[in-house]
Design a protein around this nucleic acid. Sequence first.
DNA 1: ACTGGTCGTAACTATTACTGTTACGTCAGT
DNA 2: ACTGACGTAACAGTAATAGTTACGACCAGT
Lengths: 143, 143
Amino acid sequence: MSANSRLTVAVHALAWVGLYQSRGYAVATSEQIADSANTNPVVIRRLLGELRAAGLVHAQRGAGAGWMLARDLAEITLLDVYDAIESGPLFGMHRAEPNQDCVVGAGIQPALKSVYGRLDQALRAELAATNVADVLKDVLTTR
Amino acid sequence: MSANSRLTVAVHALAWVGLYQSRGYAVATSEQIADSANTNPVVIRRLLGELRAAGLVHAQRGAGAGWMLARDLAEITLLDVYDAIESGPLFGMHRAEPNQDCVVGAGIQPALKSVYGRLDQALRAELAATNVADVLKDVLTTR
DNA sequence: ACTGGTCGTAACTATTACTGTTACGTCAGT
DNA sequence: ACTGACGTAACAGTAATAGTTACGACCAGT
């Protein structure tokens, strides 16, 4: 698979903002988060922008602005994050439509669609079973 | 995600070979399979080559050669196919190591590794629950 | 032993997605 | 107004997938 780091960095950012806020700070900047995740602030702004569109965080503009959680980390599951940042299906179909004159070519996509639906459901169920507060708690105890 | 069609085409190829053999033919050529999947024979040879390395199919060379199943379709699960052709993890970690001077940066990867392990297990369990004979049966009844 | 058909594989191109980076407009608190 | 941060466009680099051409290796059948 073409494993990407989007879910990893998004969860990292949320956990960082949550921890920062629990220490009494109001907003976190993309630069602070990027420094922790060792990446570029624009990458963070792009990712958090998608989380904002999904209603997971708020962004404040102007001087002294930054990011804050829209709801408690315990109420943000990994499925919420996944849905906010991942678009396509786990497994793709053929690039070009298979040969419809062939029995297999004509029937394979409906058959696989059903299978892939079950795979997706299994993954989503497991994603929904963990929230970002769980991850942060694990981060803080593994020391 | 960067959904690719490798699992789809691999299952398509296996189902095609299985159906072809059930009709009394000994071997299937990459050209026949490519014609059904509407792709290039080299793509099929590359994919089946990986399935061969995993012991799922045999390839015969020389004139009148081609591919044959190494075992019955009912004994080839989607997990077997997945393991044969997909290498990396479902979700990747940060590209660059996160900031180890930050509490979150230092602890996020072990925490996520545990979560991602559960996700992987859930997916694998579901993949193992379906075999290619099931898929072929579904292909033949959906008509 | 020759021929023909098929696999095995290298090499190249095109497409796509992710990541990193620079740049600059927009906005709001001071 | 000034300042600091987001919002976003634009571009380059990297990597994986997919498609294609080409050709050597191999072997059944003649």
